[in-house]
Design a protein around this nucleic acid. Structure first.
Lengths: 154, 154
DNA sequence: GCGCGAATGTTATATTGTAACTTCATGGCC
DNA sequence: GGCCATGAAGTTACAATATAACATTCGCGC
């Protein structure tokens, strides 16, 4: 099948796993980073840096600039705590930060709901095609825009 | 293999094929659209709408707003004359506008060169995964960021 | 305390993308 | 020819996304 079914985290468990992962990389788990992670994880669909900045501003009771959020999101993406959804200019928390995967996102054009699939048989095929074409250090971006089951009847 | 080797167009041949395709869809091939297509096809890597607006402004000897370029690019994408490269916020001419394919782009993070692959065995796998998850009208976005052969030594 | 580096704050600006409305060109119809 | 309907393009304004440069703060080793 190419699917895997290891531990998926959520809520406090996810937060703990994220913290564990980040500190293991030698990075600090600051209040600000925790706040950005909380905000990101609270969204049920990909959120823009500005959406997150707004939520963090509320939770902190002060104005937090998108700028600072971008820095932290970049760090999260590099550390595998979050993913960037390229076709949506948005970010989504990674539910198993300790585990490296090329992943596939299915994004509903109607409601924005995003499903995350790990299917190594597909992603490895894409990687192989890139390698054949002489590309090194490939970073596959596989996203599918369409209509989710709940929206398809509209 | 999954590759196909039908006619690839370039230069005047590509322009003629694009014109043919667009008019067959019931759309007009205006001077402005021709100018945008020329500019797009002249780039050897994905170009932003603003890059194209700048080139068209030069070729027309007057200021052309990005706005108008966006409208035409949207039309081109809908008509299969061009593709949008999501991870680069940019557009690239489709070298076989008469032929429908889900395509795969390999984009060099270093030099921006972009290679276009049609591999139906890969794209159909991605489509199938989307369908399994209940997604309809899937539109796969498959792009690979990496380093091309010429840049990999840096 | 002092110096250092990482993290964050602050301000400014660049880039990408849309919206609303106007003007222009074309072609049918009387 | 005059008139209008339509689609294309022009114009202006603005929204959304992203980066750059520099200042400030904070914790830590000395």
């Amino acid at each position: 099948m190419g699917r895997h079914d290891h531990q998926l985290h959520e809520g406090e468990s996810l937060k703990a796993a994220a913290r564990e992962r980040l500190t293991r990389q030698g990075e600090q788990w600051t209040d600000m980073r925790a706040a950005v992670f909380d905000a990101l994880a609270a969204f049920d669909k990909p959120a823009s840096a500005y959406d997150i900045a707004e939520q963090v501003s509320k939770s902190q009771g002060r104005r937090v600039a998108a700028n600072s959020v971008y820095r932290i999101l970049d760090l999260f993406v590099a550390a595998n705590l979050a993913r960037r959804v390229e076709s949506a200019n948005a970010y989504i928390a990674n539910q198993h930060p300790a585990c490296l995967h090329d992943c596939i996102f299915l994004i509903c054009d109607n409601c924005g709901q995003t499903v995350h699939i790990d299917d190594d048989s597909l992603t490895s095929g894409v990687r192989a095609a890139a390698k054949t074409a002489g590309f090194s250090a490939p970073r596959p971006v596989i996203e599918v825009r369409g209509k989710c089951g709940e929206c398809e009847d509209n």
